[in-house]
Amino acid sequence: MAPRENAPPKQLAFDLPADPRYGREDFLVGPANAAAYGLVEAWPAWPDTVCLLVGPPGSGKSHLASIWATRAHAWTVTCAEVQAASVPRLVSNGALVIEDIDRPEGRDEAALFHLLNLARERGRPVLVTAAQPVEAMGLATADLRSRLRLAPGASILAPDDALLRALLVKLFVDRQLVVDLAVVEALALRIDRSFGLARRVVAELDRDALGRGRRITRPLALAVLARLGLDGGDEADESEDD
């Protein structure tokens, strides 16, 4: 069958990262993350040298850590970068963010425990982030578990409806995508209230729209949700796209 003459050209979809804005003014605050935001804003009046920030993937931990790092002039490292040889240098640099301490890959628990103790001795503030609470981190070192349990902290919960809608708008803006509010509403009504899922859906819509050379509309959003098994329903008809 010959192709339609007026069919839109197929475009190549490149999986390029979004350009998220990590400024203080770009962080969306709601009941789900107010405690975590308050922890960052409270510095330097922290109750302890080491504080722990816990939240699911995509919930804004890195954004909050970036806000705090800017305020505290802190270095940011991954958990795997904390090794015995690097501890003196990391502590001497001043304030520090340790991201994803619950990831076991390359994790040196003895070095982490030594760093936290040394930071406390020298009054160096440390913000630790994790996707799971201490009990679920799989830590084999009892002293490290105890140290993290005693660390004051805050958890990021699932977003409420208002925060989810605001997050969807921000995710589209971060990708420089202009969408109708009907798209945001359709997504918010159909997906679970999850930071990570919202990011996944927006990324998939961006990729799908670029590949098809079409704008993101409500019918396209419903079709993508249906393909992902996220309740696109019988409304997932793209005939209205153009």
Rank of each mutant, 00 (worst) to 15 (best):
M1E: 04
N6Y: 10
N6Q: 12
A7W: 08
P8M: 08
P9A: 15
P17D: 09
P20M: 04
Y22M: 08
G23A: 02
F27P: 03
A32P: 10
A34C: 02
E41W: 05
A42N: 03
A45E: 14
V54F: 01
G55R: 11
G55W: 10
S59I: 08
L64K: 06
W68H: 00
T70V: 14
R71P: 07
T76A: 12
V77T: 11
C79Q: 14
V82Q: 13
A84D: 09
V87I: 08
V91P: 04
N93L: 10
N93A: 15
E99H: 03
D100G: 06
E105N: 10
R107G: 02
R107H: 01
A111E: 06
L112C: 15
H114F: 04
E121T: 14
R122K: 15
G123W: 09
R124P: 09
P125H: 00
V126L: 02
V126C: 00
A131N: 12
A131T: 08
Q132F: 03
P133N: 06
L139M: 06
T141Q: 11
R147V: 02
L148D: 01
G153L: 05
A154L: 05
D160K: 00
L163V: 10
L163R: 06
R165A: 13
L168S: 03
V169G: 01
L171T: 06
L171K: 11
V173G: 08
L177V: 14
I191M: 10
I191Y: 06
S194E: 12
S194H: 08
A198T: 12
R199Y: 06
R200C: 07
R200G: 12
V201Q: 01
V202D: 00
E204Q: 11
D208V: 14
A209S: 15
L210K: 07
R214H: 12
R214Y: 07
R214L: 14
R218P: 02
L222H: 05
R227P: 04
G229V: 06
D234L: 13
D237R: 14
